[in-house]
């Protein structure tokens, strides 16, 4: 009888400790963040996985990262595949105008902080010294929805009376990933005469020693405009939005996140210098550019 009692107690204890040892994971709210692909899906995941984990830790919600191709972004957002958005400033405007996305925080990176600029570059010594010299030349642009790799440069050319469709020898957009780097190298090694380069990429490549400041001539440069931007769908719980915003704005260089058993510095992994709180009106410059260049969300056929 005694042995029977002891056995029952033992089984009860085993069950109790087994239950007590269970993790509560999976019970938290799951929220998805759509990240616009930068150069490649792998690179985007590597950069922003620690940030996503950091947000989960800070906010107490299980954030899930969803890498999204630029051209599919609006369609997938509309389909409800994710709630928070991390895009370039032009896509943010598209989402804002068409889907009512709210501005959350703007990413700081490089000398111009939360802004970047577009530049039209030529190789030093190529004989192209000013913007007017690019008529009839071979030019490379970045992806079409890139604010500082396409939009700003196109706008500058129109302002200078150069129509990219008619006045160039021809223009192209390099295929595949790492487009911005490809076209800067393309100018340096003579594949193109001129190119539309984001200033941020020039800055990074100079810092990494890939190019020297003297290698290229900057023929024109746009005013700094906001760049990568966090947004959120309009009907999300304001309490959650505030927590995410606070977590982004309070991000410090020393903040880490655990990825595959390794503590990674969030800002270093994401190549960013933090987040800033811009006003939506700070994006009006880009809206004006998009209208002049006839690009989404103001495109007229």
């Amino acid at each position: 009888m005694k042995i029977y009692h002891l056995m029952r107690m033992f089984i009860a204890l085993v069950v109790f400790f087994a239950i007590a040892g269970c993790k509560t994971e999976g019970k938290r709210q799951v929220v998805k963040i759509g990240y616009m692909l930068c150069n490649s899906e792998q690179e985007t995941s590597q950069r922003f996985l620690p940030l996503t984990k950091y947000l989960s830790d800070k906010v107490g919600v299980d954030f899930v990262m969803v890498p999204v191709d630029t051209h599919d972004f609006e369609k997938r957002f509309k389909a409800g595949e994710f709630t928070f958005t991390h895009t370039n400033s032009l896509i943010y405007i598209v989402l804002r105008e068409n889907q009512g996305v709210q501005l959350l925080a703007s990413e700081k990176r490089g000398k111009l902080g939360s802004r970047s600029a577009g530049a039209i570059i030529a190789r030093k010594g190529s004989g192209i010294e000013k913007l007017a010299d690019i008529r009839g030349k071979r030019m490379a642009f970045g992806p079409m929805l890139a604010p500082t790799g396409y939009l700003a440069e196109y706008d500058m050319m129109l302002a200078a009376g150069i129509n990219p469709e008619n006045d160039l020898g021809h223009y192209t957009i390099p295929p595949g990933s790492y487009k911005h780097e490809k076209l800067i190298y393309g100018v340096l090694y003579g594949m193109y005469d001129v190119a539309a380069a984001p200033v941020m990429d020039l800055e990074n490549m100079t810092r990494d020693g890939k190019i020297a400041a003297d290698d290229l001539v900057i023929l024109a440069q746009s005013k700094p405009i906001p760049y990568c931007t966090f947004g959120v769908a309009k009907d999300v719980d304001p309490g959650l939005v505030k927590k995410v915003k606070d977590a982004l704005l309070s991000l410090k260089p020393t903040d880490t996140a655990m990825i595959d058993g390794e503590q990674l510095k969030v800002m270093k992994a994401a190549w960013i210098d933090g987040y800033e709180e811009l006003l939506d009106s700070d994006y009006d410059q880009i809206r004006d550019m998009a209208k002049r260049v006839n690009m989404p969300p103001y495109q007229k056929y």
């Binding site: 000398k111 600029a117 530049a119 200033v199 020039l202 800055e203 100079t206 810092r207 400041a213 003297d214 290229l216 900057i218 440069q221």
Partner: peptide
């Protein structure tokens, strides 16, 4: 911009 790149160094 070129000045800024030089300055960065």
């Amino acid at each position: 911009q070129t000045a800024l790149l030089k300055l960065d160094e």
